[in-house]
Nucleic acid binder design. Structure first.
Lengths: 345, 345
DNA sequence: AATAGGGACTTTACCGGTTCAGAAAGCGCT
DNA sequence: AGCGCTTTCTGAACCGGTAAAGTCCCTATT
């Protein structure tokens, strides 16, 4: 407000210096036809000399596209800080946005309702050109809102959750099945899964897949517990799973993220259980974290950075008018490390 | 682009419905004097009925302030994904921005030069009302740029690095000294520190403070190694520190973040060393991560969320014209957990 | 020679607000 | 009645661009 003034150079100065009209400058900077090479050069030179670049604000107001995309993440701040997933995802998104000189408008929200309102006001206020929607749940209200607004978005979530929206997703069910089969192949008959937030769509899909796999493999024991993704919740879940007497407790646990797996590892150690001899642990998402524990965590690993990049690319597709589509991204693959082995008991 | 059209309602419709001019609507929405209560009410009612809110873009263009603040983070994406620090910091920033209905424009950059260019173009393009600058180094070029532009910013870093800019910072030197004193008080005479990126200003301040403390306490051994903050680097550093034969190796290690401390813990385990009996480990920044390991990590803990919030609050102060100032934030405090104890050797 | 067709620009009308110089109305006072 | 003051509200200019229509000139065609 009171900040010392900055000399603003506008399109008018550039036009004057190049000896043309504002319109000509606009044509040049939007690479539209109708200008001679010579004039074009003169304009660019003038702009360079003045250090001018078109004002995105004015451009937006005048009706051209907006070079900002929105991302609202709805999780308690406390949890977010720790989830490597989102930062990695964001960095993947950024890597693509940058190529298009596009920025990311990030907002942490506390509820889905708040997000719906935010997306709508972002869009109606022309603050963003499109949005990346994450954390879908069943009957997600964002689907209808976005359709009503005709707002370009990419939905990060399974097509069964994202309705008509263009989606980018991983085949979680397949991955869960693979995880369970792998543990069963090692000889485990009592397997548990420490899942994420129950409200989230992909959590319930994983839950269903786990049940299905357990039945198909005729496991002797199968447990599932929902958490909020935090390390504390993971620790708590692990502790309660492992307190059962030896013959009844699970010999392998699959986690829905890596933070909880790390916590689980610590709980096993604290209970005097050896990993992987007494219990095998399998993480999800596989950030760097899985490699720095002892033993290193086996994980269903997943190129989260690439996932974010693909989401951003797809969003650009939607913005430029590509029809709706479904973009599967590679299914997480099993990366065995030191935390999984045949049960010794 | 080709997205189905969204019916846009503008100030004109609101004015028409309330039976006043655009100007009146503007006055009402900016709580400026010159309107009767009755008219004001009529205008707000009309706006509510039409679901209208002023367009930030148009507002910005017309010269009022911008309700977006910028944050450019310069670290390789791979590392960012894992550093709990930034996500937590961002969530603290957001918590304050939200109260002011302000958004965060986030960008990951690859170099300081890129950041300087970005900040300048953000500011000149009126994309942001101000910026939060992080990761200061000695003779940081951003100081001069920002002064030249008269751009409101808050510098997250020690005043000795941030020149005339308003800063928010923690007294790192004091914290390092406290950490070393604590370990010395436990009886450790050979202490190492696994630091962060050497180019960063706060890293060199911590390095100097460590040297100073080691000398003052006449430690028998003091090591420091610089890393890139990654878990891998932390593991490597720890491994090389601990390979020395028993009498010569450090009995305590301080880390510059918690990721490296976790990695260090794993390395100790892998080398058959017990923590804290054979070696004590002390983490920094104390995210949730420190509590979920086994043993839980002692840490110099630090309210990173609050740090971010304070930075945002201070930025608002700068934007509204408060003079330059220096805002220290509480020094990290020692939180002893299970990873530190008197040396047994 | 008259006319059509382009190319190269310029003009002008917005986009959706803010702001500021008046205008109209109401009121108290001499 | 006439005058000055407020209070309340309007109209027009402006912010920095874009886009569509218009102007001018030069060449090719019939």
């Amino acid at each position: 407000m009171t900040a010392t003034p900055t000399p603003r150079v506008t399109i008018k100065e550039v036009a004057a210096r190049a000896g043309v009209s504002k319109g000509a400058v606009s044509l040049a900077f939007n690479q539209k036809p109708g200008l001679s090479e010579a004039t074009r050069d003169r304009i660019f030179r003038a702009a360079r000399e003045l250090g001018w670049a078109p004002s995105p604000t004015a451009r937006t107001l005048a009706g051209s596209r907006v070079d900002v995309v929105g991302l609202a993440i709805c999780r308690p701040a406390r949890l977010l800080g720790l989830e490597p997933f989102y930062m990695e995802f964001v960095s993947g998104v950024e890597s693509v946005l940058t190529e298009h000189s596009c920025s990311l408008l990030l907002r942490l929200v506390r509820s889905l309702e708040e997000e719906v309102g935010l997306q709508e006001s972002w869009w109606r206020g022309r603050q963003i050109g499109g949005s990346i929607l994450v954390d879908f749940r069943a009957d997600d209200p964002r689907v209808a809102t976005v359709e009503r607004l005709g707002m370009p978005v990419v939905a990060v979530g399974h097509p069964s959750l994202t309705g008509s929206l263009t989606s980018v997703w991983t085949e979680d069910a397949t991955a869960v099945t693979e995880a369970v089969r792998y543990l069963a192949a090692l000889g485990h008959r009592r397997i548990a899964r420490v899942g994420g937030a129950a409200t989230l769509g992909h959590t319930s899909m994983r839950t269903a897949a786990f049940d299905e796999a357990a039945r198909a493999l005729e496991l002797a024991g199968a447990w599932q517990v929902a958490t909020d993704y935090s390390g504390e919740a993971g620790a708590r879940a692990t502790r309660s799973l492992l307190t059962a007497a030896a013959p009844d407790r699970p010999t392998a646990i699959v986690y829905d993220n890596d933070i909880m797996a790390v916590a689980g590892l610590a709980v096993a150690a604290e209970m005097g259980l050896s990993v992987p001899d007494d219990v095998s642990l399998l993480a999800w998402d596989d950030s760097q974290l899985c490699r720095i524990t002892h033993p290193p965590l086996s994980a269903m690993s997943h190129d989260v950075h690439g996932f974010g990049a693909e989401a951003a690319r797809t969003l650009f597709g939607v913005i430029t008018g590509e029809g709706p589509g479904s973009h599967p991204v590679p299914t997480p693959v099993l990366t065995p490390r030191g935390s999984t082995a045949p049960p010794k008991v």
